[in-house]
């Protein structure tokens, strides 16, 4: 197992984590999305077009990708946010498949240095070479991926301690009761969908520049449903949950060679059993709450001990 392979696996874990976090945010507000891969796709194409065709710098391309994804999420959110449960889920699925199928026929190419560059329907979009042109090594790019992931994760952790995060959890548990606290459920849900779109978008933009080549069929529903499953495996109590889910699937199982041909058989069975025991994942709200209380007690105990030692 060489270093390149390790970097590739870690990069993949990093990028899929964005989709998992994106789906997780919607699970927190009580909605299941089968369509987060659409925002990943929109941003991959958008940022690729910006850097490869318009010659924008990478950082601006990434920002642009996230922005495009956010706008796309807003466009989906407005008509669908009133739908509940399965209706919302299927609407996100329909939207995501529409995006993928439109990308299958979407052609927009310009000639750069005697070569045609740009998305070409189902043949995909080649030569998104911005990171190679600016001599960013695979390892440096890995650091960029994890740096951005850390920023997003810190954002989630701040959110979770804030009133806004509490509002998202309230909506996930009981929208009517949330409304009865004087809160506009619809507006907050739209906000959640847009934020989730932006998070997926960051992942998509990073992905396009890592692989330099994207094609529509990568963004099929399997990508989105995997992202969804990761949150439920790792747990819905904290943003670390989806990351744990990703780590278990890609990090652990992919690296055990003995089960390579049977990975999904083992993984599927394990997860099904896990969901029987813990329907909201390993780190569900109760587990996180328990940990938080223990942590607080520990800190209090330490402080008391410290004072005693001083005095």
């Amino acid at each position: 197992m060489g270093g390149d392979y390790l970097i590739a696996v870690l990069s993949n874990i990093g990028m899929i984590s964005f989709i998992a976090l994106s789906a997780y945010l919607l699970l927190v507000v009580g909605e299941i999305s089968f369509g987060q891969q659409a925002f990943f796709a929109v941003s991959a194409y958008g940022s690729g077009i910006a850097t490869a065709m318009w010659g924008w710098p990478i950082w601006l391309g990434l920002l642009w990708g996230a922005l495009v994804a956010g706008v796309a999420a807003l466009v989906v959110a407005i008509p669908t946010v009133r739908l509940r449960g399965l209706y919302f889920s299927v609407a996100t699925l329909a939207f995501a498949e529409m995006v993928r199928l439109i990308l299958e026929i979407f052609t927009y190419q310009v000639e750069i240095d005697g070569e045609l560059v740009g998305p070409n329907g189902s043949d995909g979009f080649r030569d998104i070479r911005a990171i190679y042109d600016s001599n960013v090594s695979a390892f440096e790019y890995l650091l960029i991926i994890y740096g951005l992931l850390a920023v997003v994760l810190v954002g989630f952790l701040i959110l979770e301690r804030s009133r806004l995060g509490a509002i998202f959890r309230m909506i996930g548990e009981d929208p009517m009761l949330t409304e009865m606290q004087g809160l506009n459920v619809t507006a907050h849900k739209i906000l959640a969908v847009v934020l989730a779109g932006v998070v997926a978008g960051i992942g998509g933009a990073l992905y396009a520049h890592l692989t330099t080549y994207v094609e529509p069929k990568i963004f099929n529903v399997m990508l989105g449903v995997h992202g969804l499953a990761y949150g439920l495996i790792g747990g819905l109590g904290t943003a670390f949950g989806p990351l744990i889910g990703v780590a278990i699937d890609i990090g652990l199982l992919e690296s055990i060679r003995a089960i390579s041909g049977y990975r999904m058989i083992v993984f599927g069975g394990l997860v099904a059993v896990l969901l029987i025991v813990r329907p909201r994942g390993l780190l569900d709200e109760a587990a996180v709450h328990w940990l938080r209380v223990r942590w607080r007690e520990l800190r209090r105990g330490l402080r008391r001990g410290w004072r005693r030692a001083e005095g």
């Binding site: 699970l27 499953a229 439920l232 999904m264 599927g268 069975g269």
Partner: peptide, 16 residues
Amino acid sequence: VASMVSSFVIWMQLEE
């Protein structure tokens, strides 16, 4: 949700 995701991982399992 757990049921649905569970049925999804079983899907992956059956396919494999």
